[in-house]
Simulated assay, not measured.
Amino acid sequence: MFDAEEMAILNALENDKLVQSIDADEEIALARKAAKEYLSKSKNITIRLSLGDVTTIKNKAQETGIPYQTIISSLVHQYATGKIRLEA
Rank of each mutant, 00 (worst) to 15 (best):
residue 16 D to F: 13
residue 78 Q to N: 11
residue 62 Q to F: 04
residue 17 K to P: 03
residue 19 V to I: 13
residue 25 D to C: 07
residue 81 T to F: 07
residue 18 L to I: 10
residue 61 A to M: 00
residue 51 L to T: 05
residue 2 F to K: 10
residue 23 D to H: 09
residue 42 S to R: 13
residue 65 G to N: 09
residue 15 N to A: 13
residue 34 A to N: 09
residue 29 A to D: 09
residue 33 K to W: 03
residue 83 K to I: 10
residue 87 E to W: 02
residue 21 S to W: 08
residue 85 R to F: 07
residue 56 T to R: 14
residue 33 K to G: 00
residue 18 L to C: 02
residue 51 L to D: 09
residue 35 A to K: 15
residue 27 E to Y: 11
residue 82 G to M: 02
residue 37 E to A: 14
residue 39 L to Q: 11
residue 34 A to E: 08
residue 3 D to H: 01
residue 19 V to W: 07
residue 70 T to G: 03
residue 12 A to D: 11
residue 45 I to Y: 10
residue 69 Q to N: 12
residue 83 K to V: 07
residue 28 I to T: 04
residue 60 K to I: 11
residue 23 D to C: 09
residue 25 D to S: 15
residue 87 E to P: 00
residue 55 T to G: 08
residue 55 T to H: 07
residue 42 S to H: 06
residue 80 A to F: 06
residue 73 S to K: 09
residue 74 S to M: 06
residue 57 I to F: 01
residue 79 Y to P: 06
residue 32 R to D: 13
residue 88 A to R: 12
residue 38 Y to Q: 10
residue 41 K to A: 10
residue 17 K to Y: 01
residue 45 I to G: 03
residue 52 G to K: 12
residue 17 K to C: 07
residue 4 A to P: 01
residue 26 E to V: 09
residue 82 G to K: 01
residue 87 E to S: 08
residue 54 V to G: 00
residue 41 K to M: 10
residue 86 L to K: 15
residue 67 P to Y: 04
residue 79 Y to W: 12
residue 26 E to S: 12
residue 62 Q to A: 14
residue 8 A to G: 05
residue 17 K to F: 04
residue 50 S to M: 00
residue 21 S to A: 11
residue 79 Y to T: 05
residue 65 G to H: 10
residue 6 E to A: 15
residue 74 S to N: 09
residue 19 V to T: 11
residue 78 Q to M: 14
residue 25 D to F: 15
residue 25 D to P: 05
residue 47 I to R: 06
residue 19 V to C: 01
residue 51 L to Y: 05
residue 56 T to G: 03
residue 7 M to D: 11
residue 62 Q to D: 13
residue 26 E to G: 04
residue 55 T to F: 10
residue 42 S to A: 06
residue 12 A to Y: 06
residue 15 N to Y: 01
residue 16 D to G: 10
residue 54 V to S: 05
residue 32 R to V: 00
residue 83 K to Y: 11
residue 14 E to F: 06
residue 32 R to P: 01
residue 38 Y to S: 15
residue 9 I to M: 06
residue 82 G to T: 02
residue 59 N to C: 00
residue 74 S to L: 09
residue 42 S to P: 01
residue 22 I to G: 04
residue 49 L to G: 00
residue 53 D to F: 14
residue 40 S to Q: 13
residue 44 N to T: 12
residue 62 Q to G: 03
residue 66 I to K: 15
residue 46 T to G: 08
residue 76 V to A: 14
residue 66 I to A: 04
residue 2 F to C: 02
residue 68 Y to L: 04
residue 10 L to G: 00
